[in-house]
Amino acid sequence: MREPVDRAPADPADVDEAVFDVVESIPPGRVSTYGAVGRLVGVGPRRVARALSSGGAAVPWHRVLRADGTCAEPVRVRQLALLAAEGVPVRGGRVDLAAVGWP
Rank of each mutant, 00 (worst) to 15 (best):
G69P: 13
T33P: 11
G93W: 06
Y34D: 06
G38E: 08
T33S: 12
D21I: 00
D16E: 15
P4D: 11
G69L: 06
R78W: 03
V37G: 00
T33G: 08
G29V: 08
R76M: 04
P28F: 04
A18M: 04
L82E: 13
A49H: 12
P9F: 08
R76W: 03
G44R: 13
V23D: 02
A84M: 00
V5N: 08
M1Y: 11
P28G: 05
A49C: 03
A81E: 05
A98T: 15
P28Q: 10
V90T: 12
P4R: 10
S54Y: 12
A99I: 08
D6W: 15
T70H: 09
R47W: 04
V19D: 04
V41F: 07
A49F: 08
P89W: 05
R30M: 05
G56Y: 05
S32V: 06
R78A: 08
Y34I: 05
A99D: 10
V37R: 02
P27W: 03
A81L: 03
R30T: 03
V59S: 07
R7K: 14
T70N: 07
V22R: 03
A36D: 09
V37L: 03
G69E: 04
V23P: 07
I26K: 00
S25W: 10
V59P: 14
R47N: 09
S32G: 12
V59Q: 05
G35A: 14
A18Q: 09
G101T: 02
V37E: 01
P74M: 07
V37S: 00
A72R: 04
A10P: 00
P12T: 14
L80F: 05
P60W: 03
V48A: 04
G92T: 14
R63M: 05
P89N: 10
L40R: 07
P9Y: 10
V90P: 10
G56S: 04
D96R: 14
A85T: 11
P60F: 02
V64Q: 01
R94T: 13
V31S: 01
D21W: 00
P28A: 07
L83D: 01
G92K: 13
G93I: 07
G56C: 02
A72L: 11
D6V: 15
A99H: 12
S54T: 15
V90I: 15
L83P: 07
V90K: 06
Y34H: 08
A49E: 13
C71R: 04
S53K: 07
D96N: 15
A67V: 08
V100A: 00
T70W: 06
G35D: 13
R94W: 05
R30I: 01
V88I: 07
A99L: 15
A57P: 00
I26N: 00
E86L: 14
Y34C: 08
